[in-house]
């Protein structure tokens, strides 16, 4: 078996383990046996409600959001040719969060459009940064710094909205740090199909990412419409981030950590890299969410807290120690 296949098998096993742990871990009032019975349609109604309306949607939401944010980061890093690019750092998540709140302000209790609003917010920030880069020809570090500025602006507007209209979010902390405590099942129904479509698109068009690694002129000489493909990937990255944010709030760092960890062990084609990002991202966010649920039970810590605790040192490590190896400029 090839090394690449072995790695993917290992990541799949980690994801299966994370899903099982997330399903079975939690409130002690329901045992693993009762969960299994409920999964197969047996047991009392309350247990079935817990499994089918709380645990499974949450597992689905956490794994979909993890995969979406990781692949979004991977696409942005490849498209902008910058290993520091991620939906969190560039302010895309904050842009999506801002539009989610604006939507909740103007259309309260209508969850259907939340996902579209988040997508629009993410798309606006991404398009702004892309056009800024294309027009000014700014350096990679300047793009990141511009993203940080946009991110700060969006975050301050988020604060303004939450202060003026506290009812726009069910759980302010979970929304701003990122978490699934106030997950609404309607959001899951809207966001998960969007994420699935984005992931399929990313996997199918992955070979064009490899071509773009060779430079625009070589890629164009090979018959790739570079500009159209780049725009498609950026829209896809925005859609994935927006859909994730509509479910779990502003989760940071995942889109930075996972693609860069994947780059350490995956040196092959981008399709394999995207699949690894899906498996690792889903497992990682699920593990963080489950830890948050059980560590201080009956209270709950938002999963974004763990990501920040891991992500911030990871960023410093990337900048300081692995500068040459990861090719950060």
């Amino acid at each position: 078996m090839k090394k690449d296949h072995k790695t993917k098998l290992l990541l799949s096993l980690i994801l299966v383990g994370a899903v099982s742990w997330a399903l079975f871990a939690g409130n002690g009032s329901i045992s693993p046996g009762e969960i299994l019975s409920a999964l197969f349609g047996y047991g009392d109604r309350v247990k079935k409600v817990i499994v089918f309306q709380l645990r499974i949607p949450r597992v689905l939401a956490a794994s979909a959001a993890g995969a979406a944010l990781s692949v979004s980061g991977y696409l942005l890093q490849k498209d902008l040719d910058n290993t520091l690019a991620s939906p969190g750092i560039l302010g895309i998540n904050n842009g999506a969060g801002l539009f989610v709140l604006l939507y909740a302000w103007f259309f309260p209790y209508r969850y259907g459009g939340k996902c579209i609003a988040a997508f629009l917010g993410a798309l606006l920030v991404t398009a702004f940064l892309y056009l800024l880069t294309a027009w000014t020809g700014m350096s990679k570090s300047s793009v990141v710094l511009s993203g940080v500025a946009v991110s700060a602006l969006c975050l301050s507007l988020v604060d303004v909205i939450i202060s003026l209209k506290p009812e726009t979010v069910a759980d302010r902390v979970a929304f701003q740090i990122g978490g699934f405590a106030s997950l609404n099942i309607s959001s899951v129904y809207f966001a998960v199909p969007l994420i699935a479509a984005g992931l399929v698109f990313a996997v199918l068009t992955a070979p064009s990412l490899d071509l773009m690694l060779l430079g625009d002129e070589v890629a164009s000489g090979l018959g790739l419409n570079v500009r159209r493909q780049r725009i498609c990937h950026i829209v896809c990255a925005a859609m994935l981030s927006g859909a994730a944010v509509s479910m779990c709030g502003i989760v940071g760092f995942l889109g930075l950590i996972v693609p860069n960890v994947v780059r350490i062990f995956h040196h092959g084609k981008s399709r394999g890299g995207i699949v690894s990002c899906i498996l690792l991202g889903a497992a990682f966010l699920l593990i963080c969410d489950t830890l948050g649920r059980i560590l201080v039970f009956p209270y709950e810590l938002p999963c974004g807290l763990f990501l920040s605790m891991i992500g911030a040192p990871f960023l410093v490590w990337m900048l300081a120690v692995k500068k040459k190896r990861l090719g950060i400029r």
Partner: peptide, 29 residues
């Protein structure tokens, strides 16, 4: 028509993968 520009990037991929990309115009993505 195949075109090779003057400046060639040192992308993170092996030689065989690079050559395989030459077949992109025939099978696409």
């Amino acid at each position: 028509v195949a075109y090779l520009p003057q400046i060639l990037k040192s992308a993170n991929m092996d030689v065989r993968t690079l050559a395989e990309h030459g077949r992109y115009p025939y099978h696409g993505s």
